[in-house]
Every structure is written in C-alpha cells, then in structure tokens.
C-alpha cells in the first residue's frame, strides 16, 4: 500500500502525458501489478474526459456591456474608475431630458380656476413664448449632447461650470414661476438672477 501512495500522485502526470523516465517505467511496471492503481488511473482519465469535455461558456454580452458602462468614459483615467463623475453627469442629462419632455406640455396647458392654482392669474402663452420654449428645448438637447461628448475627457466642473444654473434659472424659467414656485425644484444653484 505504501508503494501505491508513492505512485498514486504520479498518475496525474501519467494521464497528462507529462511523466518522463525513469518514473514512467516504474509507474507502468507498478500498474501491471496493481489493480487499485490501475483503477485509480482509469478514474483520473475519466475525470479528464468528463471535466475536460465540458463545453466552454461564453461570457454573456450583458456582462461586458455592464462592465464597459461602469467604467469612466474618459480613456485613461487612473485610480478608482468607479468614482468617476459620469453617472452624476448622466443623471443631470436625464433630468434635462425630462424637463424637455415635461415643459412643452406644461406650458401649453390652461390652468383651470378650480385647480390648486386658482389663486394665480390664468396665463395663456403667446406664440412667441412657445417658440422661445421650443428653442430652449433644442438648446437643452444640444447641451445634453455636448455634456455627453465632453464627459469623455473632462470633469464635472469642466463640463458644467456656470452653465447649468444659467440654463435652468434663465432659459427654462417659466412666467408662472414667480407666482407658483413651480420651477423651484429646478433651481439647483444660487447664482444667476433668481426671480
């Protein structure tokens, strides 16, 4: 049995074709005389066939996509990539797009007297105001595209600078904002002539 203990550990090398002389001859000779070690060798070969024959699995594309989107868009950032600002930047862009979607409908509505806004004066927007609003929407979309593009190379401060407060507090400001404070939640910075 002691002999077997010595040879058993060499069976892996034998099955892998990595056993060389003089060990190879000695193991072969032992195998001719030892049924237990022959059975062990058969199991080793079987293990190789079964596990070695498992089909390779392809990493799902979703994993690759998640990894790539989790990294900073900047090409050569060093340090901790996940602390990048870009998710926050995307959040702001999403907020801008949300504003783009909501504001036109909001500006076109007529405020019903029985609504919560009954105390304020009903305001019908003029064609000029609506056209201005549309221009603001287009400008906001352009800004969003610019932010995404510049986010590849620059920091939050570089990209946004003083522009965000001006855009939100200026161009997108509604004539109803003073009366209702409807856009107060959009005023994210104190700079830029709040009404």
């Amino acid at each position: 049995m002691n002999d077997c203990t010595l040879y058993e550990l060499q069976l892996m090398d034998l099955a892998a074709g990595e056993l060389t002389e003089p060990d190879l001859g000695a193991v072969r000779k032992h195998l001719q005389q030892c049924a237990d070690c022959s059975a062990e060798l058969a199991r080793e070969i079987q293990m190789r066939e079964l596990l070695g024959g498992l089909p390779a699995a392809a990493c799902p594309e979703a994993v690759t996509n998640r990894l790539q989107s989790a990294l900073p868009l900047g090409a050569d950032r060093t340090g901790n990539g996940r602390s990048s600002w870009w998710p926050a930047g995307l959040g702001l862009v999403a907020a801008a797009l949300l504003a783009v979607l909501l504001i036109p409908g909001w500006m076109n509505r007529t405020v019903a007297p029985e609504s919560d806004l009954a105390q304020s004066e009903i305001h019908e927007f003029t064609d000029a105001e609506i056209s201005q609003a549309r221009r603001d929407v287009i400008a906001t979309l352009a800004l969003a595209a610019d932010i995404l593009e510049r986010s590849r190379e620059e920091t939050v401060a570089d990209v946004f600078g003083a522009r965000l407060p001006r855009i939100i507090n200026g161009s997108l400001r509604s004539p109803l904002s003073d009366a209702q404070g409807t856009t107060d939640n959009l005023k994210t910075a104190p700079t830029g002539g709040n009404g």
Partner: peptide, 11 residues
C-alpha cells in the same frame, strides 16, 4: 479573458 473567467465561475 472574459470567457475563461466566466466559465471558471460558472462551473
């Protein structure tokens, strides 16, 4: 390396 790593983890 992704397929090798994924296969290792999967099995």
């Amino acid at each position: 390396h992704k397929d090798r790593i994924y296969s290792h983890a999967l099995y």
